[in-house]
């Protein structure tokens, strides 16, 4: 434990700025993965254990597009669009067959695809780790805000993730499609009776979830190494986020992800040997005091 380091950091604006942005970027990437997970669970009632694979595919798609075109914008687009299509196919062909089945059956199918997707990546891109490299536009010295260090790329990353959160939140709350999705989550039978194609809604939600994870992967590609299996480590933390925030809650995923990000960034100063433990401890505290998570709804 090194509480002096934590206290001196909290007293210094430079350190506060650096550690807060560090927490924000960890949190925002986690949010993009976790929100897809929570959305799919909320509507489809499936715990998508293979969600990390979409993060992985997003990163690989982005890297390939970047190598082919040299355009970072196209790389991001390829990461998001590619995983959306993949999500749609995966849901229609495989996941749609296990709705309403035993949870173990769903887990088994998802876990099988964790392994299959990893092997697919290995076959296409090879087993060795890859690096996409930072686009030239962002190879600039970091900004200094109140003495704290903030890389411009991370500002973009936080901005894109925030924009995704706002669009998603508003879209679900205000738009017609959003209403249909929420209705399908509550009572799919009734929605179907009203003449709405629930299969399409389910496929769409899965594609959206996959797209968000793919977006996270594409945004992370310039700063993280790409390997088969890279989705798994992100998945565990995303589960922690959804459990803390409440399964099915988008606001919960946002708050949960930011809390985890901040716990990591400040925890590494104050509790360097217990940063991971701190995350789990926090999850336990939340679960004991609010078993449905911070923003989860009580199950009737």
């Amino acid at each position: 434990m090194d509480l002096d380091a934590l206290a001196s950091c909290l007293a210094s604006p430079a350190c506060l700025v650096t550690q807060t942005t560090s927490g924000l970027i960890i949190g925002m990437l986690l949010f993009l993965v976790a929100v897809g997970l929570t959305l799919i669970f909320g509507v489809l009632k499936v715990v998508n254990f293979s969600h990390g694979a979409f993060y992985m595919f997003g990163a690989y798609f982005a890297m390939t597009a970047y190598q082919l075109t040299g355009s970072f914008a196209l790389a991001i687009l390829a990461g998001a669009a590619g995983t959306a299509i993949l999500g749609l196919i995966f849901e229609r062909v495989f996941m749609s067959r296990v709705y309403g089945r035993d949870v173990l059956m769903q887990l088994l199918v998802c876990y099988a695809f964790v392994l299959i997707f990893d092997d697919v990546v290995r076959m296409i891109w090879g087993p060795e780790f890859k690096s996409m490299g930072m686009p030239a536009a962002f190879q600039v010295p970091p900004l200094f805000i109140a003495g704290g260090v903030v890389p411009p790329y991370y500002l973009l990353l936080i901005g894109v993730a925030l924009a995704a959160a706002v669009v998603l939140g508003l879209g679900l709350a205000r738009s017609r499609i959003g209403k249909v999705i929420r209705a399908a989550a509550q009572n799919p039978g009734m929605v179907s009776a009203l003449g709405i194609n629930t299969g399409l809604i389910y496929g769409g939600v899965f594609a959206l979830g996959g797209m968000l994870a793919g977006l996270a992967g594409a945004l992370a590609a310039p700063v993280r190494s790409l390997t088969p299996g890279m989705g798994f480590s992100v998945l565990i933390e995303s589960f922690i986020v959804t459990v803390i925030g409440g399964m099915g809650s988008i606001l919960g995923a946002l708050i949960g992800a930011l809390l985890i990000g901040l716990i990591r960034s400040f925890g590494s100063l104050g509790f360097p040997l217990f940063t991971e433990g701190l995350m789990y401890l926090f999850m336990v505290i939340v679960l004991v005091s609010r078993p449905t998570g911070l923003f989860g709804k009580e199950v009737a």
Binding site: S22, S233, S268, L269, P272
Partner: peptide, 21 residues
């Protein structure tokens, strides 16, 4: 300053900023 990130950790940002501090 000592940092011990876990093996195969995807993100090192908090370690990087800690070292910078």
């Amino acid at each position: 300053s000592e940092s011990w990130p876990k093996l195969f950790q995807p993100d090192y940002t908090e370690v990087v900023t800690k070292i910078l501090q």
